[in-house]
């Protein structure tokens, strides 16, 4: 499977299915995220978008199908191994570590790039101290990138919601992922903050990162996504450019509840 045009896919879902006690949360889902693109995953609440993120990152196992990252099957692998392959994520409800400062959160995100062993780090060998200094400098740089350098030593849980979301993005970037999964990165943000997140996502894409973004904000999706897949009731409704997807009648119905609501409800019965 390929992404749009000639770009090879970095991530491919192929017939993925996941049921919770007989209820299909995700059914026969296939799509591909082209390398170096920003892909949007849309759909009404309960469509299964977050479940998809959880399946990709190994937080949940799936029942059928394949998930391939850079051509290799990652289905069934442990979450920390999937992360080590180069997939990082944020969470729909911010999940920062309690009791850690903003800087420590981002340092934790750099775990995979610690570049020193436990023994060396414990003994404080020159090499481990250099690695530590590099990690710290990098964490500060990432905080700066999300414009929170001035908050480095503040307990992250005391920051505003928008700031916490940005720390989560910085933490996810700490491992230098190749694929970043953003689960509603602008939820609870105002228009200016949302646009800033969109701008950051473009910067990251231009630096070579591939992004898959679950997003409700139609404006953000049209402005910042190269490609969109729309889900409804665990299935893919359609896929294509943002404009084409939003114009699709079933998307209009499923997402905005505008046209043909009555037939739709009748069809479901």
């Amino acid at each position: 499977m390929r992404g749009d045009g000639d770009t090879p896919a970095l991530l491919e879902l192929d017939g993925v299915g996941k049921s919770f006690g007989g209820v299909a949360a995700v059914a026969d889902l296939s799509f591909a995220v082209p390398t170096g693109s920003v892909m949007g995953l849309m759909g009404p609440n309960g469509a299964g978008k977050t479940t998809v993120i959880n399946l990709i990152t190994g937080l949940l196992g799936f029942d059928r199908g394949h998930i391939r990252f850079d051509g290799a099957e990652i289905g069934g692998a442990a979450a920390h191994r999937i992360a080590a392959r180069g997939i990082a994520r944020t969470y729909q409800n911010v999940r920062l570590f309690s009791g850690m400062t903003a800087l420590e959160q981002v340092l934790a995100g750099g775990f995979l790039r610690r570049g020193t062993s436990l023994i060396a780090s414990f003994l404080g060998t020159p090499a481990s101290r250099a690695a530590r200094a590099r990690s710290l400098a990098e964490a500060r740089h990432l905080l700066d990138r999300v414009r929170l350098a001035h908050r480095a030593d503040v307990l992250a849980e005391t920051l505003s919601y928008g700031e916490q979301r940005r720390i989560e993005i910085a933490r996810a970037l700490g491992a230098h992922p190749r694929l970043l999964l953003l689960d509603e990165p602008t939820a609870g943000m105002n228009a200016a903050e949302s646009a800033a997140i969109g701008g950051l996502v473009h910067e990251l894409r231009d630096a070579g990162l591939t992004v898959l973004m679950v997003e409700h904000n139609v404006r953000l999706v049209t402005d910042f996504c190269d490609h969109v897949a729309v889900m409804s009731f665990g299935r893919k409704l359609t896929e294509g450019t943002p404009a084409a997807c939003l114009a699709h009648p079933e998307v209009q119905a499923a997402y905005f509840g505008r046209s043909g609501d009555a037939e739709r409800i009748r069809a479901l019965r």
């Binding site: 190994g58 979450a79 969470y91 009791g99 934790a108």
Partner: peptide
């Protein structure tokens, strides 16, 4: 500390 606070998030950081 990360593992203690949230093992799932810690795993997603590798």
């Amino acid at each position: 500390r990360a593992v203690r606070e949230d093992p799932a998030v810690a795993a997603s950081l590798g």
